[in-house]
Write a protein that binds this DNA or RNA. Structure first.
Lengths: 189, 189
DNA sequence: TAGGACATGTAATGCGTTACATGATTAT
DNA sequence: ATAATCATGTAACGCATTACATGTCCTA
């Protein structure tokens, strides 16, 4: 029985206090989404698999007439999570960024259009910074105050500061491209 | 006929001077790989599709007895690339980073192990910085000197500087975590 | 009383990877 | 002679998304 990183997202979220599949879904939307997306539909089958493997203990706990199944992490589940966290494996970071991809090919555009594209990239990260500030970091800090878990908040800080860095970088590039009416031989700093 | 971003990677690489599928494969490995991976196997069917759509013109050009098919971008292909580059669409950046994911759940670890994990993340980005410096940026600068195309080099600079930023960030976090944990003293073992 | 959040799924599809497969040319 | 690189694929599989589907509870 091999678990994927997505399995550990589900397992880990239950460890952080989520009880139902729906809790996991909401928690993911406010946190790991930004560095590990899983779609809502795969959460429920994953919960079943983890229960079959003995890493979760589930029971039905309907809210009124509404079906609902809640889970607890078993000692075996906690051990499996820790084992995965400590495993020395490739930590490969994969990025799929249409913005950067288009930037790469931007020589096919007029300079003004290339500049507009960099501006769009900057604005995208500005929106992300706001999103982190207003939603994600406050939620993560709530977790820290409630349970003493500090790393969700640290990961959120990474997300915000990364996007702040991108905003800065795009701003610099905009100035570089804007002032490059004259052909320069110097590649920059 | 809808083209995916991966289609435009192939189309764009031919626009940047690649001639065969194999050329595209090598170019991707040294450039877009880091923000848009496509696996070698999907390049060849993609070339056929683009040719069927009239965006490429291919012809067989064997090297000795070795089969080889080379492609030229048609005017329709150039137009399609420009149109995609200018399209106002979501530039969604997706990141799949096991390192960050594990950091998010690192409260389940002993402080010393969490610190070791941040160190591993830093070392990963240090390797990436070297990779960019030694392979990717020189290649991209070769393109710039050869053809005047500057954006591949700008994208490479983004990759290096981003990883430099991550190295910095992880270093800061290591100091923050190191000074907080009075418990372990094996930092210099 | 209607809309949104809660709660959980199924079915079909597509995308991409892994593993496998072939064979020629060039450098050592 | 052998390894590495050039060059191009096929087949099977699995993961993940999209679209669809169902029904309850709460709030304005």
């Amino acid at each position: 029985m091999k678990l994927s990183p997505s399995s550990y997202v589900v397992l880990g979220m239950l460890g952080l206090g989520a009880r139902s599949g729906y809790d996991v879904k909401r928690a993911v939307e406010l946190s790991t989404r930004f560095f590990w997306t899983i779609s809502p539909v795969q959460i429920y089958p994953e919960l079943r698999r983890l229960e079959d493997a003995g890493l979760l203990q589930g029971r039905d706990e309907p809210r009124g007439g509404r079906a609902r199944r809640v889970y607890d992490v078993t000692p075996a589940g906690e051990a499996a999570l820790r084992e995965w966290l400590m495993a020395a494996e490739e930590l490969a970071m994969e990025v799929r960024d249409k913005g950067l991809l288009k930037l790469f090919f931007a020589d096919a555009l007029e300079p003004a259009d290339a500049l507009a594209h960099v501006r769009a990239m900057r604005e995208r990260s500005e929106r992300m910074v706001r999103r982190f500030r207003e939603e994600i970091e406050p939620t993560a800090e709530g977790v820290a105050e409630g349970s003493g878990r500090r790393f969700p908040s640290i990961a959120a800080r990474f997300g915000r500061e990364l996007n702040e860095w991108i905003v800065q970088w795009c701003g610099d590039l905009e100035r570089e491209l804007g002032s490059a009416s004259v052909v320069d031989g110097d590649g920059g700093r």
